[in-house]
């Protein structure tokens, strides 16, 4: 508990970040939320994160770009993609980019928590 895992949430809708933050903080994680990707990627330069949960479709830098940037610069960070516009192509694209998990919105909180535990090798 003294050194909690750190999770970053990037989604241009505030309600998504708010809900994810609250749910994940209940699990003891430290959570930071961002409404767009640019400041989030900047933040990664100053603070280590264990998991990045990002929306797929965002203005400016989109989720795929977040995924490729994170994987290039911080390959140890697990990336989870969530999207309201889920289709097979986006899922395949994300999988090729070494995404840890991929969820269509609405995302079941229990499943997101389980996915994060798996990413961090925390036993269920």
């Amino acid at each position: 508990m003294n050194t909690p895992y750190r999770i970053m949430i990037i989604d241009d809708e505030k309600i998504v970040g708010d809900m994810a933050k609250l749910s994940l903080e209940q699990e003891g994680y430290e959570v930071e939320t961002f409404l767009n990707a640019a400041p989030a990627l900047e933040r990664l330069q100053t603070l280590p994160f264990d998991v990045v949960v990002t929306d797929y479709k965002m203005k400016g830098i989109d989720g795929m770009e977040v995924l490729t940037t994170v994987k290039r610069l911080y390959p140890q960070i697990k990336v989870i993609m969530i999207t309201a516009f889920a289709n097979l192509d986006t899922a395949i694209e994300a999988l090729r980019g070494d995404v840890h998990d991929f969820f269509p919105k609405p995302v079941k909180i229990k499943e997101l928590k389980a996915s994060i535990r798996k990413a961090l090798n925390i036993p269920a």
Binding site: I15, M19, I82, A84, P106, V107, K108, I109
Partner: peptide, 16 residues
């Protein structure tokens, strides 16, 4: 069900 608090949803979902 989706607005029960068990899901993270966004406005796109609500609109659709």
């Amino acid at each position: 069900e989706k607005l029960s608090g068990e899901y993270i949803f966004d406005i796109v979902y609500i609109r659709q």
